[in-house]
Amino acid sequence: MGKRLYSREHEWIDVDDGIGTVGISDYAQEQLGDVVFVELPESGHEVESGDELCVVESVKAASEVYAPVSGEVVEVNDALGDDPAEVNANPYGSGWFVWIRLANAGELDELMDEDAYREYLGELA
């Protein structure tokens, strides 16, 4: 696995051999509260960086998750259909959303590493 990178909208991506696993950060799941439903894209779906990727629903609210990079969705985490609470319990593990095959690895430079993201969260508080 590579190094986890974060967007300003609290998505994370972990790139390995041109394919990035995407989820939302621990901060994001905490803000959302109990996740009860995740609407995932279909495999094969092409996204541009910043496009809507998924919709995450908590008991009371719906939130959009954006693609942190451009590329093709090559795999989705169907297990979230039965167990959406994994997004809360394991946001960096079994709570992942999709795999994206990166169209432009240069976009990763726009994202924050762990230290920068922690600093960014500090500014939000």
Binding site: E9, A28, A61, E64, V65
Partner: peptide, 9 residues
């Protein structure tokens, strides 16, 4: 991630 629908009320 951004809220589409805020908490009702």
């Amino acid at each position: 991630m951004r809220a589409l629908i805020a908490t009702a009320g």
